[in-house]
Design a protein around this nucleic acid. Structure first.
Length: 419
DNA sequence: TCTGGGGTCCTAGGGCGA
DNA sequence: TCTGTCGCCCTAGGACCC
């Protein structure tokens, strides 16, 4: 039996843990740069704030309804997520952390287990220890556990936040209830195609022929169909190293100047290098991209990316910055107004695997420098030590007007209780 | 004026050697 | 020697997830 434990309105709930005065009040959390809505409390959903809504179009609605707006605070959410996952890890024999706010658990020998009781215990313990409300769905497959979780979340009064699909009657009832666009693995494009055929819910999808599904939705669609029938095709997966690491940002304004963009791209490359070193990988290629603002139809548009193959695998900030600038020079065209750029490192090899490069070799001193850089940044806070090409005066700043304190990860932002 | 960021997997199609 | 075919590898792009 699988369980899917999902935190309710996770980012909004994190903000509420430290602002209990906001319980029962509408909250939204905005994306980086305060761009669009990425999380909503139930109250904000009820007021009609859609997911992904551009913040500037909703300022009036926010004001009128006293909706509390937060800039995203990923230091806080990441730390709260770790706390939740640590508890879940203690409560199940097998766990797969699927995303920042959800995890699959696996229970074996479930005919002898009281799943309702286990679900309630998980829910209560996470709530008590972290303040985060969760919903739990149990089912014989991952896709059905997702469905069960949706039911638990949608009907908290009737389910107490825990729902179990453990017989055919419940399975069919659940699939007939679930709109096809809400099925895990069916996105916008597939929904359009399915709707054209008159398919409206998960049950109708499960009745489609394998041939149609394979042709239109690839083997992933077929796997999904089986999973919805209760035949497991997806297992608990071990924590894997990433296959690509990206650092990309939308700018606060349009940039025209090469030097400004170069500074951003170097910083993105440095961040990628840190993430690479953390998972003990080196990359063999680096992708750099540039975008103008596609919302500004009145301005000329330009989108370009380039993959730079490295002469040797590396995770040195100095090397990656160097190659990122080489790539940027090749795609940058003067005259456009750029709104977004990014660096993605790809094609990894393990750090310990030394490759014999035929002609060129990484400067051995870099390893020592990077180690020192990481140590100093660990000690004095992230990104205190920079490369000279980066913005040392920090002129560049993300819009984060409504940022909450980093309550759990910064000692000087911790909550004070005055007695 | 202001519209996120970070991932994964699969397929089609082209290049290329056997 | 030329051409067709097969399979492998690679890449771009599309789909999905949170």
């Amino acid at each position: 039996m699988f369980a899917l434990v999902d935190c309710n309105n996770f980012y909004a709930s994190c903000e509420r843990v430290f602002r209990p005065d906001l319980n029962g009040k509408p909250i939204v959390v905005l994306s980086n740069n305060d761009g669009c809505v990425i999380a909503r409390s139930n109250e904000a959903k009820a007021l009609g704030v859609p997911m992904g809504a551009p913040a500037f179009q909703y300022t009036d609605l926010f004001k009128k309804n006293n909706i509390h707006v937060f800039s995203s605070n990923f230091a806080l959410y990441g730390d709260m997520s770790n706390r939740v996952m640590t508890i879940l890890n203690e409560m199940a024999p097998e766990i797969e952390i699927y995303s920042i706010d959800e995890a699959f658990l696996r229970f074996t020998g479930s005919q002898n287990l009281n799943l309702q009781d286990i679900g309630q215990k998980i829910k209560n313990r996470v709530q008590k220890s972290t303040g985060i409300p969760v919903s739990v769905g149990f089912a014989p497959t991952k896709a059905l556990a997702k469905v069960a979780n949706k039911i638990a979340k949608k009907f908290p009064e009737r389910t107490s936040g825990v729902y179990i699909i453990d017989n055919e009657e419940k399975r069919l009832k659940a699939l007939k209830w679930l709109p096809v666009e809400d099925v895990w693995g069916i996105g916008r494009q597939h929904t359009k195609r399915l709707n054209k055929l008159g398919i409206k819910n998960a049950y109708e999808f499960s009745q489609l022929s394998d041939t149609w599904i394979k042709k239109n939705m690839s083997v992933l669609g077929l796997r999904l169909k089986k999973d919805l029938f209760g035949i497991p095709t997806l297992e608990i997966e071990d924590l894997k190293s990433k296959k690509s690491i990206a650092t990309t940002r939308t700018f606060d304004k349009n940039y025209k100047d090469f030097e400004q963009i170069k500074e951003r791209v170097v910083t993105f490359a440095v961040t990628c290098s840190e993430k690479l070193r953390k998972q003990k990988s080196q990359c063999n290629s680096i992708l750099i991209f540039l975008h103008t603002n596609w919302h500004r139809k009145d301005l000329p548009q330009y989108i370009k990316n380039i993959v730079v193959k490295l002469p040797y695998p590396t995770n040195s900030a100095i090397e990656l910055a160097k190659f990122a600038v080489i790539g940027l020079k090749k795609i940058f065209i003067q005259g456009y107004e750029y709104k977004k750029a990014g660096v993605i490192v790809i094609d990894f090899t393990p750090e310990e695997q030394e490759q014999m490069a035929l002609f060129e070799k990484q400067d051995e001193r870099h390893k020592k420098i990077m180690k020192t850089m990481d140590n100093l940044n660990d000690k004095f806070g992230n990104h205190k030590i920079k490369l000279a090409a980066q913005d040392l005066k920090r002129r560049w700043k993300m819009n984060q007007e409504k940022l909450s304190p980093r309550y759990t990860t910064k000692i000087d932002e911790i909550i004070l209780i005055h007695c």
